[in-house]
Design a protein around this nucleic acid. Structure first.
Length: 254
DNA sequence: ATGGTCGTGTGACGA
């Protein structure tokens, strides 16, 4: 079973890219983030054999799960704050397994309520995943975590000092997610540094391979045991008019 | 040191 996460930076602008990826790569499950609009083109995916479920809002955020198998909704918002209207969380059951797709808040600038919102959101996520662990529900969570876990996940750690993606408080909370017994799928399969999932549009970041690793899959123990591989597919970042992110792919047994 | 680039929706904001 092949599962993929990809921040597409607008589904309207990237529909052809997403369809091309589905046709060329044929994943069982594709989790996408940053849909950036109310409309979601379910029919376009239906036409090529994929079911989909989306959580959207106007202009910002938005996540969707596109799947060969039927999808059952569990949660379309992260529990813990009924006042939070941002479209950043989608939890489903699919083929008897639990899949969670997140677009974790960016958090910049750090001296604003944006950063406190990010940290509070991460705390709510820890609570949700702790509950799933307590209930012994196997799950895979993928998405744009907006966290650079370690120095070696960026080109120049010094230049990221003070940024919400690299802030010690963001990294501590990411570490607490791992401490629930979760596996950073890419990190355990590839210990090299400087393996990126995002390159800024600006300042020739892609051409200079000046990126960051912020898109992740975390696996509960039962699914970590079933992992065959985890890779980053750099190709879509090189396509014409690309997203600034590229897909991360996990292959599970059976 | 500064500004550089995209996307949304059509002005300013988010990343």
């Amino acid at each position: 079973m092949k599962i993929v996460s990809w921040n597409v930076n607008s589904i309207k602008a990237r529909l052809d890219h997403v369809k091309r990826f589905l046709e060329e790569s044929g994943p069982d499950v594709l989790m996408i983030q940053e849909l950036k609009g109310l409309e979601f083109p379910s029919d376009a995916f239906k036409n090529i054999g994929y079911e989909s479920r989306a959580v959207t809002q106007k202009a910002y955020n938005g996540v969707a799960i596109i799947s060969k198998q039927p999808v059952t909704l569990i949660h379309d918002k992260l529990p813990g704050d009924d006042a939070d209207e941002q479209a950043r969380y989608l939890e489903v059951e699919l083929d008897g397994l639990r899949f969670i797709n997140i677009y974790l808040p960016n958090g910049n600038p750090v001296d604003t309520e944006k950063f406190t919102y990010k940290l509070a959101w991460m705390e709510r996520l820890i609570t949700r995943l702790k509950d799933l662990r307590s209930d012994n529900i196997p799950f895979a969570i993928g998405g744009d975590f907006n966290v650079i876990p370690e120095d070696k996940d960026c080109h120049d750690p010094e230049s990221w000092k003070g940024d919400a993606l690299f802030h010690i408080e963001s990294r501590r909370k990411f570490r607490r997610l791992l401490n629930l017994g979760l596996t950073d799928a890419f990190r355990v399969k590839d210990t090299r540094g400087e393996q990126y999932t995002f390159w800024d549009y600006q300042a020739g970041a892609w051409q200079n391979d000046n990126g960051i690793r912020i898109d992740h899959f975390l696996l509960s123990p039962a699914l970590a045991d079933k992992m065959k591989s985890c890779t980053i597919d750099r190709n879509p970042r090189g396509w014409e008019k690309p997203s600034d992110h590229t897909p991360i792919i996990v292959e599970l047994e059976s």
